[in-house]
Write a protein that binds this DNA or RNA. Structure first.
Lengths: 189, 189
DNA sequence: GAATTAACATACAGGCTGTATGTATGCAAG
DNA sequence: CTTGCATACATACAGCCTGTATGTTAATTC
């Protein structure tokens, strides 16, 4: 008779193994081309475990996306702990650095919105790094109403997202960095 | 014995029926949630016809995306035939108008890149409206090297895309339009 | 320590994709 | 004008995948 671990620990380990395996496969091949049989094989469990922990394959994907977003936020906050303009620039650099992880941009910026929907992704972002950008917008243009601040922050993040995707796709980072800087400067005027 | 139409006509009609049916379903439910059995039912043919005309389901999707991109370009060019700055602003307005077709933004700006890949979508765009934006960038900032022009045009189109997606998702158009107009005008100075 | 429940594993049903094969008609050559 | 081939499909099939239903074992609770 094998001794088993306490339920809480067992549960946490299985869940982590599933998310880890799914993360690797989603990063490598994307959501549609990754099947649950392959995920559980890599995780060393069965599909029963997966469907015990997650409602469906999309829920596994959502958990992976959340974990990736957490990792990115951790990297950015480690590199730029403050809230001033200096920290914002460092944060941008760190964000681009974090986005160089292969497949990450596609997962977070392309498949995430496509699979989970815009609003769900917006919610995930808002619970994490999104607030910083809005604060920066407010400090840059204090006399702007809230809706426009919201839109501005969203548009600026669209610039970053597109640049990261283009770079992952083989574009020269230099031109994008320079152009983003130029657009943001004009925005600040 | 029924008389049949000449092959060329027959082929064109079947293909059009397939793309039309697929377009409606993709717009309504997206790529993943639309099956080929449903497409061919709506088109009044069988799956055999679909796989005779297209290599796989993704190829059908690519054809729909191309058709949608054509439709958008036609609308924009009809509303803004010129090449000057005036035409660019009119074109922007027309583009937003065209993007209000339900599901279109999600299809062209979200699922297209996710399913077909960034580079394929970039190719489709480049064969159509993309050139206009690049020309506008060049005329606005003649003393900029090509790579940066490329990046600038891509980033500006990212602003448009994000705005259209946000609007389709229920955001207030006003704030986005205002912010984008500000960016474009400032870039032109 | 008996009952309950959590954490899985196994088995199954249905649907979908892509391919292989069959068929009827258009079309072209002689 | 008919004979042979190619085109444009339709039908049939194999395999995979998803989600659910059911079974099993050990931890937990009372």
């Amino acid at each position: 008779m094998q001794e088993r671990k306490p339920n809480a620990e067992r549960r946490a380990e299985t869940r982590a193994a599933l998310i880890g395996a799914a993360r690797a496969l989603f990063l490598e091949k994307g959501f549609a081309d990754t099947g649950t049989p392959e995920i559980v094989r890599h995780a060393g469990v069965t599909r029963g475990a997966l469907y015990h922990h997650f409602e469906d394959k999309t829920a596994v994907f959502a958990a992976v996306i959340a974990a990736e977003a957490n990792a990115v936020q951790a990297d950015v906050e480690a590199a730029a702990p403050g809230r001033d303009r200096e920290a914002l620039l460092d944060g941008a650099t760190a964000w681009f650095e974090a986005m160089r992880q292969p497949g990450r941009a596609r997962l977070l910026l392309l498949e995430g919105p496509a699979v989970l929907g815009i609003s769900e992704m917006r919610r995930i972002d808002r619970e994490r790094g999104g607030a910083g950008l809005r604060e920066a917008m407010i400090s840059a243009r204090p006399d702007t109403d809230e809706a426009e601040i919201e839109a501005l922050a969203d548009l600026v993040s669209a610039l970053f997202d597109r640049a990261a995707l283009a770079i992952e796709d083989g574009a020269e980072p230099g031109a994008y960095h320079a152009s983003i800087r130029r657009i943001i400067i004009t925005l600040g005027q």
